[in-house]
């Protein structure tokens, strides 16, 4: 057993999960502020300086609210569902390289060779939480939300998976660190695979249940969908799960398409210095922030899709396009290899 490896890994886990929880809280804050600005409002500004302590207040409120379990629910699943929603969102970060090197440590928790497969596997677990919540609530709205969610997740998972195949064909590895080194060397993959990027981006919206694809929630028709019956901290877990998923999806997109932690046209000599290491982490976070703002902005910009449009887009448009995309890159690579 390599104690040093274990120690550093634990340290990295703590250093990732801790700030991640904070980011979840402040992405809610960001969402509230952005939506307020778009709607000509100011947004939360009472708690702390410029309302910066609002997430803290929200958290306290969530804890203090009555945790109500309706009598008709299936208790075990009802309690399990929020945890199952939140945990996979955090697990995704295990394989994402959020920086280059800090000292002698690679800034990734687990540098797996099958990183992206792991990600997709974990992400597909997330749907269980929602489906379980819908089923356990024993309420028609929740049930419809759960059903919608499962169908939506499966549909877009396929398109999403297909869309990234050209990237790995180009990079030649499923290891995300390798993908980033490829981008550091050749430039961002968004330039090489724009079609993949668009499909992945839209699918990411569907996977995270964000507007315009928030069919499982759709508060106007399903009164909150799968989390209708939830209250207090259990509801807050769903809420946190949604934002954690958004952050995870942003991180994935940054890694796959925007060169991860790399900074374009910036090739320092002393790559292993602490300062440069933090700079790269900062670059990663900045890129993620751009995606988060994008995610949030879209929500306040577009109306919800109809369910048939959603299915139509996933199966009839993205899947064939993704397949054709793979074929195209295969042909290109085949020609180049000759």
């Amino acid at each position: 057993m390599d104690w040093q490896f274990l120690g550093f890994s634990l340290l990295k886990i703590v250093c990732v999960i801790g700030p991640l929880l904070g980011m979840v809280a402040y992405s809610v804050m960001l969402e509230r502020k952005l939506s307020a600005a778009i709607q000509d409002r100011i947004g939360p500004n009472r708690v702390g300086l410029w309302g910066m302590a609002q997430p803290l207040a929200d958290g306290i409120k969530s804890f203090l609210k009555e945790d109500f379990t309706p009598s008709y629910v299936r208790k075990i699943y009802f309690w399990l569902a929020p945890a199952i929603t939140l945990i996979p969102a955090f697990l995704t970060f295990a394989v994402i390289p959020f920086g280059n090197m800090l000292g002698q440590q690679k800034m990734v928790i687990a540098d797996l060779n099958v990183g992206v497969l792991y990600t997709f596997g974990i992400v597909s677990l997330g749907v269980y939480g929602i489906v379980l919540a819908g089923y356990a609530s024993n309420s028609k709205y929740s049930f419809l939300g759960g059903i919608r969610s499962s169908a939506q997740m499966i549909s877009y998972e396929i398109a999403m998976g297909m869309s990234v195949i050209p990237i790995f064909m180009l990079a030649g590895s499923l290891n995300l660190s390798k993908v980033i080194s490829f981008q550091a060397e050749h430039g961002w993959l968004i330039v090489y695979c724009p079609v993949s990027f668009v499909i992945f981006l839209v699918s990411a919206f569907a996977e995270t249940n964000r507007l315009p694809f928030d069919m499982p929630e759709s508060e106007t028709e399903l009164v909150g969908g799968y989390h209708t019956e939830y209250s207090s901290m259990k509801f807050a877990l769903f809420f946190m799960g949604e934002y954690a998923n958004m952050i995870a999806a942003s991180a994935m997109m940054v890694t796959l398409f925007l060169g991860g932690w790399t900074i374009p046209f910036f090739h320092p000599q002393d790559v292993n210095s602490i300062g440069i290491g933090f700079l790269y982490i900062g670059a990663f976070l900045l890129k993620m922030l751009i995606f988060m703002v994008f995610f949030i902005w879209i929500r306040w910009m577009l109306p919800r899709f109809r369910y048939d449009q959603l299915m139509d887009l996933g199966w009839k448009k993205f899947l064939p396009v993704a397949l054709a995309n793979i074929f195209l890159y295969a042909v290109i690579l085949w020609i180049r290899a000759r």
Binding site: A36, D40, I42
Partner: peptide, 20 residues
């Protein structure tokens, strides 16, 4: 085009005067 026009509307309000 719809996304673009949506973006224009939201961006205009984003920088516009607040009524709160």
């Amino acid at each position: 085009p719809t996304i673009w026009s949506g973006f224009k509307v939201t961006a205009r309000h984003f920088v516009g005067k607040k009524v709160t």
